[in-house]
Structures are given as C-alpha cells and as structure tokens.
C-alpha cells in the first residue's frame, strides 16, 4: 500500500548527500544545535552544582528533531511543545539567558519564573507548551482551525513523545485533524522510553507511523538522529500540510539522558555518551567536517561568546 511511507534508515542520508546545499545554511543549523548543547550542558551543570530541586527535562539525543523543525518556522506558523522542549525554544530563537533563568525560576525568565521549564509560552513567537500528556494535541488542532478559518497559509507543528501515542488524546486529535483537513504536523519523538518504561512495554505496536493510516493521513518514520533527515522531510511535507493535510511523523531518537535531571533515580538510567552515532551533534559535525567546515573554530568562538554572555 502506497498510502503510508516508511522511510528506511540510511536511505535519506544517501539521497541527501547528493543534494546541493551550501555550507552557510549548515553553519547556521550547526550553530543552533551547538547552542542548544551549550544551554543544556549549562542547565545540567546548574542542576547538580546548585542543587536545583525542580525536575528538569533535557533533550539530549533529540536535538536534530527540535532544531530541524523549528529553525525556519515561517511567519504566522505556530509551534506547540511538551515537557522536553528546550530545543524548540532555541530553534525559534529565544534568548538563552531567558530560557536558563526560567529553568532557574527567576524573575528574568521567559515567563518570570512562573511557568518553569515545561510550560514556557512566548506569544510573540507563537509558541506554547503543556506538560499534561496529550493536552497539546487538541490545542494545536484548535490553533490550526483558527488559522484555516482566517484563510491563512500558516501551519502548526506539535511535538510529543511515544507516551502520548499510548493515550486516548492521539485518537481524538488525529481524527479531527484529518476530518477537518487541518494544517497540523504531528511530530512524535520516539526516544525509547516513557519515564522508566520502554516503548515495547507501553505500546502494542511500536511502528508508530502506522497509526496515521487509520485516519487516512500520511505517516512517516525518520531517523531523528541526523538533522539532514529532518530538514529533508520537512521540505517534502510542508506544502502538503499547508494545503490542509495533516501529517504524522515518527522521529526515532535515543534518549541520551534520564527522564529528568534532578530525579536521580532516573538519571542513573543513561549517561550521555557523545561522539557516537546516537548523538545528533556528533552526526552533524561529522558531515560538516566532510564538507570542509572548520568546526573547531566555530565551537571555540561560540564557547567564548556563551561563557561571556552568561557571566
């Protein structure tokens, strides 16, 4: 059946290597993804050195998905996040200090320390997030309906993990998005876990992209560890979504950290191991070195700037 497409691991990378992309756009992408790494490292360090007691959900391992879908969000588009969405804010261009201060819970934070890490809102950037599993789906649908009604060409991208697919909310959301032809991109970031349970332990079918079929919409599966996959799939499906056809994408990543920093019990689960193919930053660096980009000097420059800025 041609209706759903499963993009096999690797296929896209080969296809993409042959495409002609200028280094400049990759440098911009790299800078964002490296900034995200700097911010998350800073927060992680902050959590443990300052003994911050809030559980903090970091996105090690899903950076490519977060940045890839938000880096070139068009005027009028909305992004709806969930509890593990710092990457979306960096992708949208929110000031790093505002994000870090919000995680710290101080007055200088994006939402004055009121909303905290999981519920950040930025009306100007048309960004909103919720931490109750599944709540963000219907909000995304509502926004999309509003946009469509206004005759706008804009779209909504909503992010969630596989635990949302185990909740009933996904059914209501996909049904309505399809029934009313809403311009919504459903991005499921499958990181292998729902807190402590594995995907296999919570879902009877772990081919999540197949869920789209029943609703008569397109479902894709991509390797979310490489940002080139995300950029390509985004280019491919954007016109479809803007024409009023929702799309569901399963982005497979590895959760390279625990469920939450500050919750030691779960943090012992996994420790980030950079420099392997599960790390989106590593994958991008490898590719860019091949293109002849001087990664080390970009990194050094950003390290200095970031440290100065954060002082």
């Amino acid at each position: 059946m041609e209706f759903n497409e499963c993009i096999k691991y690797g296929n896209m990378l080969i296809k993409y290597d042959k495409m002609n992309h200028n280094n400049e756009s990759y440098i911009n992408i790299y800078k964002k993804i490296y900034m995200l790494r700097l911010v998350e490292n800073y927060i992680k360090h902050m959590v443990y050195s300052l003994n911050i007691e809030h559980p903090v959900h970091l996105g090690y391992g899903q950076e490519a998905v977060d940045i890839g879908f938000t880096i070139n969000v068009k005027e009028g588009d909305y992004v709806v996040g969930y509890h593990r969405s710092l990457g979306l804010l960096i992708g949208l261009g929110v000031d790093a200090k505002k994000i870090i201060s919000e995680v710290e819970g101080t007055e200088n934070g994006l939402n004055n320390g009121i909303s905290g890490i999981g519920h950040m809102i930025d009306p100007d950037l048309r960004y909103i997030s919720t931490t109750i599993i599944g709540d963000n789906l219907s909000i995304a649908n509502g926004i999309a309906y509003g946009l469509k009604r206004k005759g706008s060409n804009a779209m909504v991208t909503v992010f969630f993990g596989e635990a949302t697919v185990s909740s009933g909310a996904i059914h209501e959301a996909l049904n309505i998005a399809s029934l009313w032809s809403l311009p919504v991109l459903f991005v499921c970031i499958k990181n292998g876990y729902a807190i402590s349970l594995t995907t296999e332990e919570i879902l009877s079918n772990t081919d999540l992209w197949k869920i789209a079929e029943w609703y008569g919409i397109k479902g894709y599966r991509v390797d979310g560890r490489d940002i080139r996959n995300i950029i390509q799939i985004k280019e491919e499906i954007e016109p479809i979504i803007r024409s009023g056809t929702p799309v569901f994408i399963e982005c497979d990543v590895e959760r390279l950290t625990g469920h939450a920093e500050g919750l030691d019990k779960f943090n012992l689960f996994k420790i980030i191991e950079p420099n392997n193919e599960n790390d989106p930053l590593y994958n991008l660096e490898k590719f860019m070195r091949r293109l002849g980009v001087d990664i080390e000097s970009i990194k050094e420059d950003m390290n200095v700037k970031f440290n100065t800025y954060m002082q």
Binding site: I139, A140, N141, G142, G146, K150, A169, A173, I176
Partner: peptide, 23 residues
Amino acid sequence: FLEIPVMENSIIGMSIGMALAGL
C-alpha cells in the same frame, strides 16, 4: 458553527487553540 464529535477534553483544548489564533 462547529459541530464536533464527543470528546469534551479535546473540545476545550481546541477552544484554547482557537482563542490563541484569535477566535
């Protein structure tokens, strides 16, 4: 008019989204 199926939680969620989009 927006006639919707039975899904009360999603109805309110969607209304929130619609309000954000100016409805």
